[in-house]
Computed example of a mutant assay.
Amino acid sequence: MTVDQTLESNSVMDVLNIIFMLIGLVFLTLAVMTFALCRRNPRVSNVARLNLCVCLLLAQPLFLLTQSFLHLIRPHEVLCKVLAGILHFLFLCCFMWMSIEAVLLFLSVRKLKQVKPNDRAGLHWKLSLLIGYGIPLVIVGVSASVRPDGYGSPK
């Protein structure tokens, strides 16, 4: 991070950034495939982890691509605002899914004190989807309607 406005391009850092971004995307793809395909224990729900990985898998390349092609996006004000809103939504979804996973972990640890092997700790997957995507959608909708010029900037 720099505090001054000098933007010097460093080709080594750009190449390393692309390489590590691709490595991260490969491992996120492996995580999504693992959570989607490996469902051996019916008492364990991977909904929160799967959706968190999907949101990260969508948000990371979109963020990096918008930064790489900012010179093409900047002249189109509506496109810039839409991309900023989508990124805001995806990152809020990531935080919401992390919160849901924390609540599910808390509930499962609390269930360890009780001996009920057939009980499933956690939320129903439909309720999880409603919370995980609904709350961020409401936040982005309210913020876009209250201050429509808040998304997108010349920078």
Rank of each mutant, 00 (worst) to 15 (best):
T34C: 14
I100D: 02
V47N: 13
P148L: 07
V103H: 06
T29C: 11
M33I: 03
Q60E: 13
H71P: 00
H76R: 06
P136S: 03
H76C: 08
A59H: 05
C38W: 11
T29K: 03
L130P: 01
Q60P: 00
L130F: 06
T66A: 15
L72Y: 04
R147I: 06
L123A: 12
L107D: 01
E77R: 14
P61A: 03
E101C: 09
S108V: 03
V140S: 09
R147C: 08
L112H: 06
N51F: 11
A31E: 12
L87P: 02
W125I: 13
R147M: 12
V142F: 10
S128W: 00
L65N: 08
L105W: 10
L62R: 02
G134Y: 01
L56P: 01
S143Q: 08
F89P: 13
Y133F: 13
R110P: 00
G132K: 05
P42W: 00
I131S: 05
V140H: 10
K81W: 02
L137I: 05
V140C: 13
K126G: 13
V32A: 10
P136G: 12
W97I: 02
S45R: 06
V54S: 03
F69R: 07
L105I: 08
E101P: 02
A36R: 10
F69Q: 09
N51W: 12
S99R: 09
L112S: 15
V82N: 06
A84H: 13
C38Y: 09
P136V: 01
L30T: 01
V47C: 14
C80W: 11
I73T: 00
M96T: 15
G141T: 02
W97L: 01
I73Y: 01
F91L: 14
I131F: 03
G150Q: 04
C94L: 06
V103E: 06
L137W: 05
L57K: 03
S99I: 13
L83Y: 05
E101N: 14
R110N: 14
V78K: 04
F89D: 09
N51C: 11
I139M: 13
F27S: 11
E77N: 07
G141F: 03
I139G: 00
S45K: 11
F95T: 05
I73L: 09
L129F: 10
N118T: 15
I73Q: 01
S99Q: 10
